[in-house]
Structure formats: C-alpha cells, structure tokens
Design a protein around this nucleic acid. Sequence first.
DNA 1: TGTCAACAAGACAAAAATATCCAGATATCA
DNA 2: TGATATCTGGATATTTTTGTCTTGTTGACA
Lengths: 161, 161
Amino acid sequence: MQLSQTAEYALRAVVWLAEHPGDPQTTQQIADGCKVPVSYLSKVFQPLSKVGMVSAQRGLGGGYVLERDVDQISLLDVVNAVEPVQRIRSCPLKLASHGSKLCALHQSLDNAMAEVEQRFGQIMIGQLLRNSTGVRPLCETTGLAQLGISARAGGSPGQAP
Amino acid sequence: MQLSQTAEYALRAVVWLAEHPGDPQTTQQIADGCKVPVSYLSKVFQPLSKVGMVSAQRGLGGGYVLERDVDQISLLDVVNAVEPVQRIRSCPLKLASHGSKLCALHQSLDNAMAEVEQRFGQIMIGQLLRNSTGVRPLCETTGLAQLGISARAGGSPGQAP
DNA sequence: TGTCAACAAGACAAAAATATCCAGATATCA
DNA sequence: TGATATCTGGATATTTTTGTCTTGTTGACA
C-alpha cells in the first residue's frame, strides 16, 4: 500500500518547480534536486503537461515551469494526473448480485481510498512551501538553503561549464 | 494509488475463510469463491500462514482454516502480512539535512498512510460479516446464497449445513 | 545561417509484481 | 498397503512498472 514511484517523482518535481517560480528548470536540475532519474523525467512530465499543469520551453534557457498557481494545485491533482487514485466503483469480482453496491469489504477499502483522496485534495502545493516548519523547505536543501544561500547554477558554488 | 492485487486477494481469502468457520476450504473452493487464480493462492497464503493467521491441513477433507477469531483480525493485520503499509520514516531522498524529520510533502503523504493504517486497524473481519447491509454477505453470493441456498461450484448443489 | 541547449517521444532494457506449473510431502481412507 | 486428495515450495512465464537510450524537433543567439 503506497504511492507509485512515478507519483512520488511527480510530486517532488512539481514541488521543485513551485520552489523556483518564473525560473525554467531543466530536467537535469530537477533530477539532481529531486533525486529522480533524469532519463525518467520525460515520462513523469508527459501527463503533467497534458493536463496543463506544467509547460516546457525548449532551447537555451528553457525548461519546465508551473502553469498554475501553487495554491491551485493539490496533491490530488498531481497524483491523479500521473496515476489516478483507484476508487472501487463496482464489485471487483463482478458478482452480478452486487450490482453497483459494494460488499462490506470493498466498501471499507473504498472508504479508505476516499479518505486519502479527500485529504490529498485539500493539500495545496503552496501550503507545503509555506509550511516549512522551521527547518528545511522541501525536496533538497543542503542545509545552506535554509539560510537563504542558494546553491544552484546561478548561485555561487557549483560548476560553471 | 491502490492496494496491491496480492493484498486484495488475501483479504478476500480471509473473509472467505471467515465465512466458513470450522470448514477447511480447499484452494479450489477459495479460488472459485473469491475469483483468485487458483495457482496463485499458495503464494497468497504463504505469508498468512507464517504469521499464524491461517493454517493448512493436507489430504482429503483438508484445506485452509482461520486460526484466529474473526474479531481479532483487522484489515491491517491481513494487509501487513502480505504487503506492509509503507510508512515514510525518513526522507526518501536521503537528504542529510532532513535527519529523521520529514519535509512538509512527505509528512503529508505519511499522514495519509497513517490514516489508512489506523482505519484499517480498526476494521475487524468479523465486523464485515455482520455488516451485511441487507444484501450480500461478501465475496460471492449468487443471489441465491442470500436465501440460504448454497450453490457451490462443481455442478451439483452440494451439502446442506 | 550554424551551433548549441533543451525537450519529445518512441524503442529498448531491467526489475518487480503477478501468474502458472509441477514434483514432492502429507494426510485420509479403504 | 495403495489410491487419492491436498498443501508446499521452487522454477518458470507473463505483465506491469520503472528506467535508459537514441533520434528528432524546437528555440535562442551569435
């Protein structure tokens, strides 16, 4: 019982983009920052672009940017884009006698899914950024980031090719 | 976001056994009644036997039986036996700066897991059986079963209780 | 225009989950 | 004892998920 890896990656990536507003992030940057296989990122972003949550710009200075307000994107939006929460809408055993009603077992399971769905629907990406409870922002932070010292390309350290 | 197929199967099987107390069920019976591939059942039962939730009897008249009271087995017990609910206990990105604390994203995800875990832990198998809300018992029922007419596979309507 | 930086997308590969098969170990019963 | 029923557990096959690679397209800019 857990989120798929792909959904995890998608959430990290979206949060990452949310942390870099107005600054297109390349797959390499995202991969490094989110610890996502760089060659897998295109797969992760495909459905996110499809629903218009992110957009990509090619060429020098390009990369991905969020297309919607961070407070208008819920965890559920992200998860559903890449791997919809599976609600149980009819008997998984296809028992005729069950019609569209669920037995107690499947009703219980679906209730749990419903709860998760609702919970995820209420949590907005923006909320996560602000909710930095004292410590780290989110995905990454070298310990320096907390002091406002950016350690990215464009900041001080790192390699400039 | 969903239960693994194996966990689904395990839950069905346990419920099935709960519906047939004191009557060892063969893999064939369980497979038919629960719509689980018969040849996969041994894999499903392996971890359930290991934790002592079920036991198997070989030979004629043998099969699987529940070893614990139906009101002492929660959905969580079953799920955890075959595929533990994955709680997030430390930063999945292994960020040193996060120590054992979770960022807002992962904390949110883990909270959802915790909720599911708790919910599952509260629902007992026995509860599901009694909770037949008017209609069907659980996994199976041809519509006849509700009238007390057993319609077991194998062609001939079998033994009356 | 040419060159380089970047994404797009499909083909391929590896790993994990799911499913099948079968020889062997037990158990029951005649 | 023999015949039959049943689980056990390992080897294997299939499918899905995850990950990689490569070729092509787009965009910026000198």
